[in-house]
Simulated assay, not measured.
Amino acid sequence: MSNELYAEEEFNALLHEKDVLDGVFECLRRIWGHTDALSDRHLAESEYQTRLLEYELLKLYPDLYDELIDAMGDHPVTSIDSGCGVIMDALSVREGFRLEQELQSEHDWDISFTWAPIEGLPSETQFICREWFGAQSPSAVSRDDFRFIGDRDVPQLPSTDPAFVWTRHPDQRLEGALKGNYSMEEVEEIYQGVKGLLEDVVQESVHSEFLVTSDHGYVNHLGNSPYSLSDEEESSLSGKFSSRFREIGNGQAYRVLENANVIKRVDGHYVVRGHHKWTKRGATKKIMHGGLSLSECMTPVLRIDTTGGN
């Protein structure tokens, strides 16, 4: 049944890890731990394996999303008391696995990599930035210990302890490059840009310890999918949702989608579960966030100590 989604090691992690989501993380490592998983030749298959993993796990473990929601809050970036917290908008565990490998091999740094759930739903920057820094967007945060980076140029960074840096990448490139016309090569280019930006932040900072993470991940609808919708569900989604979340509403369309487990009510919003996608007129975005899925709601937590080799 595993469809090569996990071998004995990952299966044992699913069975015996204290938190089943830690076992899920090891399954994701099996998919995205390959150095070429983001490449144009393998990206579509990597994404399909990710969707299939989530689809199959939910059948085996129906409480998967409830456990993920219960784990949300108290993200580790909010509790650092020294060093620098680097929040890279929409950086996902996909890129995290590769960053772990490449930064470890290319720099004399100590690197560790794990994951943490997002702060809360919907998995959108505006909600998480409000929770963490009391502002509607990272560009609106005005604090001496905080710096927003909107492009590839790194400004003077805070020397406070702790300090926080929020970069608009990779989400700026994902949103700008992947609306409608989609090129798989662009994902590799975006990754290289993000890696270079992170290296610049580390080099320009006065700190030697960094916690690198994100506000949320994303779903990528590239290629085939095991998820499907009936005509009624497709019509309901396309009629009521322009993104992967929306405020609570009333009507038959919502009841249809809730009964089919396509959407889930979380506080004042409906969020789309899993990797369901639907078509609307005009360009259809392949990369989206705001909903409830493993790839959106499990954020990377990369810890870097630049004095590790000394």
Rank of each mutant, 00 (worst) to 15 (best):
S39T: 04
S39I: 04
D40S: 13
R41V: 08
H42I: 06
A44D: 11
A44K: 12
S46Q: 08
S46I: 01
E47A: 02
E47W: 09
Y48S: 05
T50K: 09
L53I: 00
L53H: 01
E54A: 03
Y55W: 14
E56P: 06
E56V: 11
L57E: 07
L57D: 05
L58N: 11
K59M: 03
Y61T: 05
D63I: 07
L64G: 05
L64Q: 03
L64V: 00
Y65H: 13
D66G: 09
D66W: 04
E67T: 07
L68R: 04
I69P: 10
I69F: 12
D70W: 08
D70L: 14
A71W: 09
G73I: 01
D74H: 09
H75Y: 02
S79R: 13
S79I: 00
D81Y: 09
S82A: 14
C84I: 04
C84P: 06
G85T: 00
I87V: 10
M88A: 08
M88L: 12
A90G: 01
V93E: 12
E95Y: 13
E95W: 15
G96I: 01
G96Q: 07
G96C: 04
F97I: 00
F97G: 05
S105P: 05
E106W: 05
H107L: 07
W109H: 09
I111T: 06
F113T: 00
W115T: 02
A116R: 06
A116D: 05
P117T: 01
G120Q: 10
G120L: 04
L121Y: 07
L121Q: 07
L121C: 10
P122W: 03
S123A: 13
E124T: 15
E124H: 11
T125H: 08
T125L: 11
Q126S: 14
F127A: 14
I128G: 12
E131F: 05
F133S: 06
F133E: 07
G134I: 00
P138V: 01
S139Q: 15
S139C: 09
A140D: 14
A140N: 15
V141I: 08
D144E: 14
D144T: 14
D145A: 05
D145I: 00
D145L: 05
R147W: 02
F148Q: 06
G150C: 01
G150E: 08
V154F: 08
P155D: 05
P155C: 06
L157H: 14
P158C: 02
P158T: 00
P162C: 01
A163Q: 06
W166E: 06
T167G: 15
R168C: 08
H169G: 11
